[in-house]
Design a protein around this nucleic acid. Structure first.
Length: 921
RNA sequence: GGGCCGGUAGCUCAGGGGUUAGAGCACACGCUUGAUAAGCGUGGGGUCGAAGGUUCAAAUCCUUCUCGGCCCA
C-alpha cells in the first residue's frame, strides 16, 4: 500500500532568492542603487561623531586600465575601511591619483611623434594642458573600474595631484624645506644625450650593440705606504670609454681581490688582478712574469699620478686608490679608473672620499674650452674618431708612454630612444634634500619614525629601515615639463637660494589660482621687481615622488576634506612602496613635521600567475580583473583577494578562481537556505535565550566565539583568516551539523512548537551575523541577501557589527558538543559499512548501540538527544566493561511524513505521534 | 651581483622542536531526492622545495643549494 503524500504538510524552505548568482549582470544594478541613494554620504552621516579611522589612499598613477595589482590593492583597502565601519568607526575613504610625471609626458609625446610633430615646437603651457587632459582621462577610466569593484569611497571628490590646490600644497611643502634650509644644489651623474642636450630617464634609453675602443692605461704609482716596493710600478686600468680618461680622479680596487705585480717583456712592472694576468697579457701583447702577490690591503693609501700629469693643475693632483665593492675580476684589470663625472659607482665612491666632479664635459658633449687636455677639441665625446686607437686621446696617452693597448671592442651600449644616438653619464646640477644635515638629521628622524610605526607584516619595518639607513640624499629635481616646478630663485653671485616668506606666500597663492603654469619669467619679474636679473629662476620640476610624499598634507591636513585628520591611522600599499610612497611620505613629513604621516603601514605582496610566476604582457600570462568581473563578478574577485595570504606573493588563475567560485556558491546557498528557512518569520516567534535547547545554545556559543575571532582578525587586517573563519563555520558547524540536525524540526514540527521557534530564532541570529560579517567581503551579494529579507530597511552596509552576547559562550557546553560530534564521527564510520552492505540507505533507518567504560562520557552527554544529533533511529549508550559500537537496521516503522523510524508510528496513517498532531491536531 | 622575503595535499590555507602533519574545496565512491545545477557520508591523496648539520626527537632551529618574488646595482 502506498503511503499518503504528506509533502504538502511539510514546511520546506521557501524563497525567491536564486541559487544562480548571475553576478556580472546583477552587480551593476546594485551599484546603480547605491549611487542613486548616495550610500557613501549615508555612511558618513550614519557614523558621524564616532571615533575615526583614518585610512589614507595612496595614489595610483593615472595611466592605463586597472590591472590585477590595482584590484587586489583596492579590495584590501576597501575591506579595511568596511570592517572598521562595521565595527562602528567613522572611516572615510578619499581616493586619489598621481597625475604628473614622465610616463604621461611620454605618452603625450608619443602622440606627437605619430603626428610627426616635435614636442619642442609646442608651447609648454599647451603641452602641459595635454598632459593634464591625458591624466584626467585615465582618472575617469580607473574611477569607473574601481567603482565596479564595489569600492566604497568618495568618488565624487577624489584627490588629484594635479589639482591646482594640490600643486599649491606641493609648492608650499617644498618651500618649507627651503625655509628650513633643507635643500641644496649638488651634482649627480644622469643619463645625458649630447645630441638632444638633455637628461634622459631610464625608460628613454635603449641598448644597441656597437664597437668601441678598449684601452689599457698605465698610471704610475708614486706613493704606497703599505707596500713601498710598488712605487715606480704602474697600475693598469681598462676602459671602453677612452674619453673619460681626461677626467680621471682615482683608481678603485676590490677589497677582496688579490693583485699581482708583473714584469713585462720590456722590463716594466705593472699591477693587475691575479685572475686577469693572462687576459691582460694577451691584450697588451707581452708575456708577463709574476713577481709577487699584492694583497688588496696593501693598496690602501697608495697614490698614482695621471699620465698627463705634466699638464699641471688638475692633472698634477695625486690620484688615490679607493676600495670599491663594485670592482670585479670578470673583465679588465681588476683596477677601475674613477671619473666621478661619468659613472654612478665612480660618483658615489669619490663623493665618499671627498672627491667632487669637475664638469669637464659640457651639455653638447664637448670638453669645456679651458680644459687643459683636449679643451676646445671640436669633436664631442661620443664621436668614434675621438676615441679611436689613432685618435687624439690614444695618441697623447701613447706619447706619454701610458697606452698599453688600444683595440676595437664590441658591446651593448645605451642610446637615446628618440635620436638613436649614444648617450653618456654626465654630472649635472640637481636639487637635493640632505639626509645627514644638522644635529637632528632627517635620517635620524626617519629612523625614529619607523620605530614608532606599526607594520603589518612586521618584516616591512626591516625593509624600509634598511633602505632609509643606507639611502643617499634625496634628489628632488627632474629636467622635465609635466610636474610641479621647484619654485626657487638662486642668487647668481652667491649661489644661495632666496628665502623670503612674503615672496613664498605669493608663489603659493598664485599656484592656487593657476597651478603649475604660474611659474613663468613674467611671474618672476613680478615677484622680484628690479632685482630679477640678480637671480636665476629654477626651471627644474619636482620628482613625482615628492608630489606623492605631500598627499598627506593635501588630503589629511588641508581641510578640503573636513572628514579627514592628520596623521593617518593607516597607509596600505604593495611592498614595492617601501622604496616609494611609504618612504617619500616619511621623508617629506619628517622633514616638515618631525614624524611620519601614518601610525601604521600595511603591505601586500604581488599577484603571480597560476604557476607562481610574475605576470607580463609579453609572456601572455596576465589575468585581467575586468575580464574576471565579466566572467565571475566582482564578489568572486573580492573573495579571492580576501582568501589568499596577501602579505606574501600569491597566485591567481582559472583553477584558483573556480575554487573561489565554489566557496562563493557554498556561502550563497547557505544564505538561500537561511532565507528559505526563515520565510514568514515574525518577532513574536522569537524564543528567549533561557528557553533554548542545547544545540541552539551551542550554535549561539559558536557565533559568539567566532564574533570575537573575526573582530580580532579584522583588527589585525588578517582577512584570509577572516574569510576562512566564516567559511569553516558555515561548512562545519552549520551546514554539515546543526542545519542537518534541525531539518527535522524545521520541516516537521508545528510552527508554534518551541523547538522549531528556538531553531528559527537562532537562524535569525545567524542570518544577521553572516550578512554583516560577509558584507565587507561579498559587498554585492550581502546587499542582495539583506534586501531579499529586509527590502525596506536600507543598505546592509550601514549596519554595525551584530549584537552578539559574550555570555553566550559556554565552555562546558562546547566540550559536550565536541564529544558528541566525535561520537558522531565514530558512528558514521560504522554506519558507512552498513550502507555499503546495502543493509540501510539513509542513516535514519539505523539503530546504534554503544557501550563504554568511561562513565564520565556518559555523564557528559546526559541531556543530549543523541539519536536526534546523529540523525539515526535510536541510540543506546550504556556503561559496561568493554568499549563497543554496533549498528544495525532498526526494527521500527518509518513515519511517512518525517521519515524517522519511531516506535509510535500508527499503521493506519503511517504517521508518528508528533506528525499526527501537526497534520490532524 | 647586493638587500629583504617566500616554497606544507591538485587548489586556498592552518601548524613554527614532541604521538601516525591538519581543515575546507576539488577528485572518487556511496546515500538522499523535503536546500536538488543543492544537501549528507566515506575514501584516496603529502620524501612539509633539495642536501647536509644540531638534537633523544626537525615541516619547525642552523648552513648550503635550488626555484620564485619585490627593491636596488
Amino acid at each position: 500500500m502506498n503511503a499518503p503524500d504528506y509533502r504538502p504538510t511539510v514546511f520546506l524552505p521557501k524563497t525567491d532568492f536564486p541559487m544562480k548568482a548571475g553576478l556580472p549582470e546583477r552587480e551593476p544594478q546594485i551599484l546603480a542603487k547605491w549611487q542613486a541613494a548616495d550610500l557613501y554620504a549615508q555612511l558618513r552621516e550614519a557614523r558621524a561623531g564616532r571615533p575615526k579611522f583614518i585610512f589614507h589612499d595612496g595614489p595610483p598613477y593615472a595611466n592605463g586600465d586597472m590591472h590585477i595589482g590595482h584590484a587586489l590593492n583596492h579590495i584590501l583597502k576597501d575591506a579595511v575601511v568596511r570592517t572598521q565601519t562595521l565595527m562602528g568607526k567613522d572611516a572615510p575613504y578619499i581616493p586619489g591619483w598621481d597625475c604628473h610625471g614622465l610616463p604621461i609626458e611620454w605618452k603625450v609625446e608619443e602622440a606627437y611623434r605619430a603626428k610627426k610633430q616635435n614636442k619642442d615646437d609646442v608651447p609648454a603651457v599647451e603641452f602641459r594642458a595635454e598632459c593634464r587632459a591625458y591624466a584626467q582621462h585615465w582618472v575617469n577610466v580607473q574611477r569607473d573600474q574601481l567603482k565596479r569593484l564595489g569600492i566604497s569611497a568618495n568618488w565624487e571628490k577624489p584627490y588629484l595631484t594635479m589639482d591646482f590646490q594640490a600643486e599649491a600644497t606641493i609648492v608650499s611643502e617644498l618651500l618649507k624645506f627651503a625655509e628650513s634650509g633643507q635643500l641644496y644644489r649638488g651634482a649627480k651623474p644622469v643619463m645625458w644625450s649630447p645630441v638632444e642636450k638633455t637628461a634622459l630617464a631610464d625608460a628613454e634609453v635603449e641598448y644597441h650593440d656597437i664597437t668601441s675602443t678598449q684601452i689599457d692605461v698605465a698610471f704610475e704609482i708614486t706613493e704606497a705606504p703599505n707596500a713601498p716596493e710598488l712605487v715606480g710600478a704602474h697600475a693598469v686600468i681598462w676602459t671602453t670609454t677612452p674619453w673619460t680618461t681626461p677626467v680621471n680622479q682615482g683608481i678603485a680596487y676590490g677589497p677582496e681581490v688579490t693583485y699581482q705585480l708583473c714584469r713585462t717583456q720590456d722590463g716594466h712592472r705593472i699591477l693587475i688582478a691575479a685572475p686577469l694576468v693572462e687576459a691582460v697579457s694577451a691584450r697588451i701583447g707581452s708575456a708577463l712574469t709574476v713577481e709577487q702577490d699584492v694583497a688588496a690591503s696593501a693598496l690602501a693609501g697608495a697614490v698614482v699620478r695621471h699620465p698627463m700629469h705634466q699638464l699641471g693643475d688638475f692633472f698634477a693632483r695625486p690620484r688615490p686608490f679607493l676600495p670599491g665593492d663594485f670592482v670585479t675580476t670578470d673583465a679588465g684589470t681588476g683596477l677601475v679608473h674613477m671619473a666621478p663625472d661619468h659613472g654612478e659607482d665612480d660618483f658615489a665612491l669619490c663623493k665618499a672620499h671627498g672627491i667632487n666632479p669637475v664638469f669637464a664635459v659640457e651639455g653638447d658633449g664637448r670638453y669645456r674650452a679651458d680644459w687643459l687636455w683636449l679643451g676646445g677639441e671640436s669633436k664631442n665625446v661620443i664621436n668614434p674618431t675621438l676615441n679611436a686607437p689613432d685618435g687624439p686621446i690614444c695618441n697623447d696617452l701613447r706619447a706619454a708612454g701610458a697606452l698599453l693597448s688600444a683595440e676595437p671592442f664590441a658591446h651593448s651600449y645605451p642610446h637615446s630612444w628618440r635620436s638613436k644616438k649614444k648617450v653618456i653619464f654626465r654630472c649635472t646640477p640637481q636639487w637635493f634634500v640632505p639626509m645627514d644635515q644638522g644635529e637632528h638629521t632627517l635620517r635620524q628622524k626617519a629612523v625614529a619614525a619607523i620605530a614608532a610605526t606599526q607594520f603589518t607584516p612586521d618584516k616591512g619595518r626591516n625593509r624600509i629601515g634598511a633602505m632609509v639607513e643606507g639611502r643617499p640624499d634625496w634628489v628632488l629635481s627632474r629636467q622635465r615639463a609635466w610636474g610641479v616646478p621647484i619654485t626657487l630663485f638662486v642668487d647668481r653671485k652667491s649661489g644661495d637660494y632666496l628665502v623670503d616668506k612674503t615672496i613664498n606666500e605669493k608663489i603659493i597663492a598664485r599656484f592656487r589660482e593657476q597651478g603649475v603654469d604660474a611659474w613663468t619669467p613674467e611671474f618672476a619679474a613680478e615677484l622680484l621687481g628690479d632685482k630679477v636679473d640678480q637671480y636665476e629662476q629654477i626651471t627644474d620640476i619636482l620628482d613625482v615622488w615628492f608630489d606623492s610624499g605631500c598627499t598627506h598634507a593635501f588630503v589629511l591636513e588641508s581641510g578640503r576634506w573636513p572628514e579627514m585628520q592628520w596623521p593617518a591611522d593607516l597607509y596600505l600599499e604593495g611592498s614595492d612602496q617601501h622604496r616609494g610612497w611609504f618612504q617619500s611620505s616619511l621623508l617629506e613629513s619628517c622633514g616638515t613635521r618631525g614624524r611620519a604621516p601614518y601610525n601604521a603601514i600595511l603591505t601586500h605582496g604581488f599577484t603571480m600567475d597560476a604557476s607562481g610566476r610574475k605576470m607580463s604582457k609579453s609572456e601572455g600570462n596576465t589575468v585581467n580583473p575586468l575580464d574576471v568581473m565579466k566572467t565571475y563578478g566582482a564578489d568572486i574577485l573580492r573573495l579571492w583577494a580576501l582568501s589568499v595570504d596577501f602579505t606574501e606573493d600569491h597566485r591567481i588563475g582559472d583553477e584558483i578562481l573556480k575554487g573561489v567560485a565554489d566557496h562563493y556558491r557554498k556561502l550563497r546557498n547557505t544564505f538561500r537556505y537561511l532565507l528559505g528557512a526563515l520565510e514568514g518569520w515574525s518577532e513574536e516567534e522569537r524564543l528567549p535565550v533561557d528557553q533554548m535547547p542545547a544545540l541552539e545554545r551551542w550554535v549561539m556559543h559558536r557565533l559568539s566565539v567566532i564574533s570575537d575571532e573575526l573582530k580580532a582578525a579584522a583588527v589585525a587586517y588578517d582577512f584570509n583568516r577572516y574569510t576562512s573563519l566564516i567559511t569553516d563555520f558555515v561548512q562545519n558547524d552549520l551546514s554539515a551539523f546543526a542545519m542537518d540536525v534541525r531539518k527535522d524540526s524545521l520541516y516537521c514540527d508545528a510552527p508554534t512548537a518551541p523547538a522549531r521557534r528556538a531553531w528559527r530564532t537562532v537562524l535569525d541570529l545567524t542570518f544577521h551575523a553572516l550578512t554583516r560579517w560577509l558584507a565587507p567581503v561579498m559587498v554585492f551579494t550581502a546587499e542582495e541577501v539583506w534586501g531579499t529579507r529586509h527590502p525596506d530597511s536600507g543598505s546592509v552596509h550601514l549596519l554595525e557589527w551584530p549584537e552578539i552576547d559574550a555570555d553566550w559562550q559556554d565552555a562546558v557546553l562546547d566540550k559536550q558538543f565536541m564529544l558528541a560530534r566525535k561520537l558522531r564521527e565514530e558512528v558514521y564510520l560504522k554506519l558507512e559499512e552498513l550502507r555499503r552492505a546495502k543493509t540501510v540507505g539513509s542513516f535514519l533507518e539505523a539503530s546504534v548501540t554503544i557501550t563504554t567504560t568511561h562513565a564520565d562520557r556518559i555523564a557528559a552527554l546526559a541531556g543530549i538527544d543523541l539519536a536526534e544529533l546523529l540523525l539515526v533511529a535510536d541510540v543506546s549508550l550504556t556503561h559496561a566493561d568493554t568499549e563497543s559500537l554496533t549498528v544495525e537496521k532498526a526494527d521500527l516503522a518509518k513515519c511517512a511524513r518525517c521519515w524517522r523510524h519511531l516506535p509510535d508510528v500508527k499503521p493506519e496513517t503511517e504517521l508518528c505521534g508528533r506528525c499526527d498532531a501537526v497534520v490532524n491536531g
